[in-house]
Write a protein that binds this DNA or RNA. Structure first.
Length: 663
DNA sequence: ACACAATATCTTTTT
DNA sequence: GATATTGTGT
């Protein structure tokens, strides 16, 4: 029984504002509970009211941990809780597994042998490092037995970490075609791991793996957090992987911490990141005595769209039995299936229909175009531009991953962590006549000088980079001038008398990189503008570590509230559309081999097609009022097979559920 | 030996 | 449009 003392400003009327199934989940007193929430059934609502209910019954905000799939989801939920109960919600720990891991590791990473201020590697850094190592371990590619690409090794390693299997086992089970290179692969992986270590960096997977290790090896830390958190809530539970699941258990099974996991097995679409639907199926086994709640009333879609959704997911055998019941009255129109002669006509159809909708008074923000892969939207993008329809893309390349942003960030990373090899090499490569070879030499002498500095003045961060590095590091004559200037800039970022904010640091770094940008980037003015926007949007971040963590962990999707135009049509991959909804949804490129992707069609593992089916289900369930499903009969993008039959997702739909349209 | 420019190739999904 | 490979110049 929970104490009845609300510590909050407002107590919502739970019984009045929730339906019966939602209320049951929100008010449960079971220590462990699983909430199966169908698409559009008010999952977020349930979760936020659950948090409010806890606060209303005397649980302080700081003792609640809310784990979400994206930072954006965390922000939105905390915002909604705040509206519900008042400022008390601000103390809640909310964020992605990665960001929470970062938060905890910032404090305790030295227990695992890291120096303070470790940096976070992004995907580019990972690739650069592993490619470097592949090159080192096998000088020349043999033509007869080509060695796998660095990227493949990274996905192998990532899968191993996230599924908590040793690399050897993952290699045998998921990459048998690489077995003949086993020895070298394992050596490279070992090398990769130690290089990250030496550079005092963690990649995304390390954040999770190290949090797990920390809680496993240091019971005092585990107790600190499992005592602190009275309630852990996990959103999108169907997409947790083995490692994340272990972390949840570490936090919840030790003492008396309660756990509520919310998810929908039909919407699990991240198995390629190691997510296993099985966790949701085995919840009651893993957490004995757990209660299972189902929320099945769909408030989002008209019944006709719901019929399509149910028909789509019916292809999959293995799922929790639940029936989505429509709360909305029937609409006038059936979803429309549109075969187009070719991809260009398809795009024209989409743009044309959007134009009509806008003219009839609909807002751009109420419309979305969804697709399987980023490049599917190229034609639509062109067509919308041509017709002057504003749109916004949740694009493939993310803001923080653009070269010029990373160039600037590299300075700050190196300042926070002078052992950050990837940051160093990025900067070195910007110097004239410095490439990979001289970069390596410079890095060696750089670290030697650092270690010398460390033994001579322990715990004293480097301030005079020029004094330390000019005599130690040799650079090609052509690079000497820019090298000195770089070192001077680095020194200026850490003045003796006061501390600079990250925004101030950026403007100093820009002075140094501006010349390089003007020469190397065509559109350098835009790029400068980008960076200024970056430092503006982060101007409230005071600490360098916080700033760098945000840059590394926030994705483009998390940033979209920054930009103001909300009358744009949304173009998005289905993955990025998860959790969102629009009045009108177009799903394009529904051709066999495009969606489902040809790889899944030829795959021997039936689970791949099941996941593809769930992805289609996710797409369809985003729509509230109108749904258009289109495909090009002739696909100009694919040079091998131009002719493109309709997706099996379309052909398997009962024809009475939709009407045929014309492009 | 190395940096750098030019050319060919190909697109799944993301913290 | 970005990256992997190949070719050319210092």
């Amino acid at each position: 029984m929970l104490p009845q003392l609300p510590s909050i400003a407002h107590v919502p009327d739970f019984a009045a504002e929730l339906n019966e199934q939602q209320l049951a989940a929100v008010t449960t007193e079971a220590r462990f509970s699983l909430v199966i929430a169908g698409a559009g059934s008010g999952k977020t609502r349930t979760l936020t009211y659950r948090v409010a209910w806890l606060l209303a019954h005397g649980v302080p905000g700081w003792r609640v941990l809310l784990l979400t799939f994206t930072n954006k989801a965390a922000r939105e939920m905390l915002e909604r809780v705040r509206k519900l109960v008042g400022p008390e919600a601000g103390d809640i720990w909310g964020g992605t597994f990665h960001s929470i891991a970062n938060r905890i590791l910032r404090r305790h990473a030295p227990l695992l042998g890291y120096r303070p201020g470790f940096s976070i590697m992004d995907t580019d850094d990972q690739k650069a490092l592993i490619r470097n190592l592949v090159k080192k371990h096998i000088g020349k590619q043999s033509k007869t037995s080509p060695f796998p690409k660095g990227d493949t090794l990274l996905s192998l390693l990532s899968l191993a970490v996230n599924t908590m299997r040793p690399p050897e086992q993952t290699l045998r089970e998921d990459f048998p075609q690489l077995l003949k290179h086993e020895d070298t692969i394992l050596k490279i992986i070992a090398d990769y791991t130690s290089r990250k270590r030496e550079a005092n960096t963690m990649d995304f997977d390390d954040l999770l793996a190290n949090l797990h290790l920390l809680l496993e090896k240091h019971s005092e830390v585990r107790e600190l957090y499992s005592r602190r958190f009275l309630h852990v809530l996990v959103d999108e539970y169907q997409d947790t992987n083995a490692l994340q699941d272990r972390i949840i258990k570490q936090l919840c099974t030790g003492e008396s911490t309660g756990l509520m996991a919310v998810g929908d097995d039909a919407q699990s679409i991240y198995s390629w990141r190691g997510a296993q639907v099985d966790h949701i199926f085995e919840f009651t086994k893993n957490f004995p005595g757990a209660d299972v709640f189902k929320i099945e009333t769909n408030y989002r879609s008209v019944p006709a769209i719901l019929d399509i959704s149910n028909a789509a997911i019916a292809r999959n055998e293995r799922r929790y039995v639940k029936t989505l019941r429509p709360a909305r009255p029937p609409g006038n129109e059936l979803p429309t299936v549109v075969p187009a002669p070719d991809n260009h006509t398809e795009a024209q159809f989409v743009a044309h229909t959007i134009r009509q909708l806008l003219d009839s008074g609909m807002k751009g923000r109420e419309i979305a175009v969804l697709y399987r892969a980023h490049f599917h939207c190229l034609d639509v993008q062109m067509e919308l531009t041509r017709q002057h329809i504003p749109f916004r893309i949740t694009s493939g390349l993310r803001f923080f991953e653009q070269a010029h942003v990373k160039d600037v960030i590299a300075y700050l990373r190196l300042l926070a962590n002078p052992y950050d090899e990837m940051a160093f090499r990025r900067i070195a490569a910007m110097l004239p006549r410095v490439g990979e070879a001289s970069g390596s030499k410079m890095w060696q002498t750089w670290t030697q000088a650092l270690k010398k500095h460390e033994t001579e003045c322990p715990d004293e961060p480097v301030r005079d980079f020029g004094g330390l590095m000019l005599p130690a590091v040799k650079v090609p004559p052509a690079a000497q001038a820019s090298w000195s200037s770089f070192l001077a800039t680095m020194s200026s970022l850490r003045p003796a008398d006061h501390e600079l904010t990250p925004a101030e640091m950026i403007s100093r770094v820009l002075l140094d990189t501006e010349a390089y940008f003007t020469v190397h980037y065509e559109n350098y003015e835009e790029r400068l503008e980008d960076i200024e926007q970056l430092s503006r949007s982060m101007s409230d971040t005071e600490s360098l570590d916080d700033f760098l963590a945000q840059v590394a962990l926030l994705s483009e999707a998390d940033r979209d509230h920054v930009e103001g135009n909300d009358d744009c049509v949304t173009l998005s991959t289905i993955h990025q559309a998860k959790g969102l909804e629009w009045k009108v949804v177009f799903i394009i490129f529904l051709g066999e081999g495009m969606f489902p992707h040809s790889r899944t069609i030829y795959s021997s593992d039936p689970r791949e097609m099941e996941e593809e089916t769930r992805l289609f289900y996710v797409a369809v369930t985003r729509a509230q009022d109108l749904l258009f499903l289109s495909y090009p009969r002739y696909n100009g993008h694919n040079p091998d097979s131009h002719f493109c039959p309709p997706s099996q997702f379309l052909t398997s739909l009962p024809p009475e559920l939709y009407e045929l349209g014309e492009a």
